[in-house]
Every structure is written in C-alpha cells, then in structure tokens.
Amino acid sequence: MVARPGGDAVRPIRTFLAFLGTSFRKNLAYRSEVWLSILFGLLAIVIQAAIWRALLGDGAAEGITVDDMVTYVIITTVISAVSLHRLVSDVDERLRGGDIAVDLVKPMHYPTLQLADQLGRSAFQLAFVVVPMVVIAALTFGIEAPASATAGAAFVASLAIALLVSFTQGLLLALLAFWFLTTFHFIWANGALLTLFGGANLPLWFFPDALETVARLLPYQFVAFVPAAIWLGEIAGSELAWTLALGVMWVAIQGAAGQALWSAAVHRLTVQGG
C-alpha cells in the first residue's frame, strides 16, 4: 500500500467531508420544494411574532420588548430548521427497509457517518432555506444585531452546541429503534419535552420559577432558548460561561450514552443477526 499525501490522520476527516458533501448533493434533489420549507419557517415566525405583539404591545415584560421577541423567534426558527433531530426518522426508515445493513458494512463509525449525513442536510437547509427565510423575516419584521461582540461569538459556540445536542439526542432515539423496532413513540415523547422545555414557544424567563429551574438543567433549552437568549445578551457574563459548559456537558453525556448504545446495538446485530 502506497502512502498518500496527508497520511492516515487526515483520511477520516476527508471521508467525513466526502460523506457530508454527498449528503448535501443528495438534498439538492429536494430543491424544488425549498420555497415550501421557507414558507413553513416564515409561518412559524408570523404566528409567534403576532402573539408576542398582542401580548407585549409597546411595553416590555421582564425587560423584553416585542423587537427582542421577534429576533428570539427568528433565531429559534432558524435553529429548528438546521437541527439534526431528523436522523431518527432516517434511521427508522432504513432499519425497517433493511438498508441499515448497507450502512453497517461501510468501513466507518456509523454514528459519525450519520453526523456527516445530517450536517450535509443542515448545510443544504442553511444555504437554500435559512438564508432566504432570514432575509425575508428581517425585511418584514426587523431583526436585532447580537447584543455584543462577545454575544455574537458565544452565539456561534451555542449554535455548535445546539447541533451536537440535537444530533446526540436524535442518535439516542434512533438507536432505540434497534430494540423496539419503532421510534414513533420516542419521537413524540421527546418532542413533547422539547416543546415544553426547549423554550421556542415560551422563553424560559417567562416560566414560573420552579419550572424554570427544571428547564435550565435539562438539555432541551440548548436547541432553542439558549442560542437566542445569548444573541439577545440575556445570558451573559459568568452565567454565559456556566451555560455553555453545561451544554458541552450534555453533549458529552448524550454522546457517551449514544456510543454505549451503539456498541450494544452492533453486538446485538452481529450476535443475534438482527
């Protein structure tokens, strides 16, 4: 075997990027429907913005104005468009169709492969859906700039955390399919928790105190509330550092659980033959 330039250390990264690119191109097949996806996101923004306009009027609650909430809503909508939860339904489909065997024989760590696949989809969403959607929303409703340079930088970090939290969560749910042969129930139950504790529809600062405490400990806030609150400068200073650290911790916990479940799933497949 001839050593190639770049060597073995770079090869996995190159493979990863190759899969990511393939996934991006695969998603191009859906391009004729992007305007529907844009519409989908805009509707969410229109509804939420109208509700907050009705609730807040020209005033403010807990120091939050309508303009703040419009920005908040745009950001949470963007995050839900690029989040990597979709992995569950993909794996579910492939498991039931038997295609999963093809994935398993590829000489690559399956979860990593899935990450590349999902990121490819997100990149597509970002380029074709999120950008036009944000432009239209900003022109129609207005959008605030990040509260500060720090907030902007921290937002990027929180976005990465949002992607990884959603990915590891999706992975955990997907792997449950190896045992239960369905993910429908888990998707709904997890979706319920995300609806309630994610904060997309109701920011955590409007929660009753006890519930807010619970929500601030759970991972769901990282897929909606946290990035938006950071953008608005509502999470700053030491709280910012602490929140980001908690996010990283949740990625680690869910990632480790996913890896453990993955090993068990492989064992199960190879030993019991599915």
């Binding site: 129930h185 709904w188 979706g191 319920a192 928790l193 109701l202 409007f206 009753p208 519930l211």
Partner: peptide, 20 residues
Amino acid sequence: AQGIGYAAEIAVIWLLLHRF
C-alpha cells in the same frame, strides 16, 4: 405518546396565559 405530545402543547399555552 401522542397524548403526551399534545399535553405539552396545552401546557405551553397554559403557561403563556398564566404569565400574561
């Protein structure tokens, strides 16, 4: 599971009205 999903939706609206 679906019941839980809808219950969460109701809860969010209730929380909203509880606050405002």
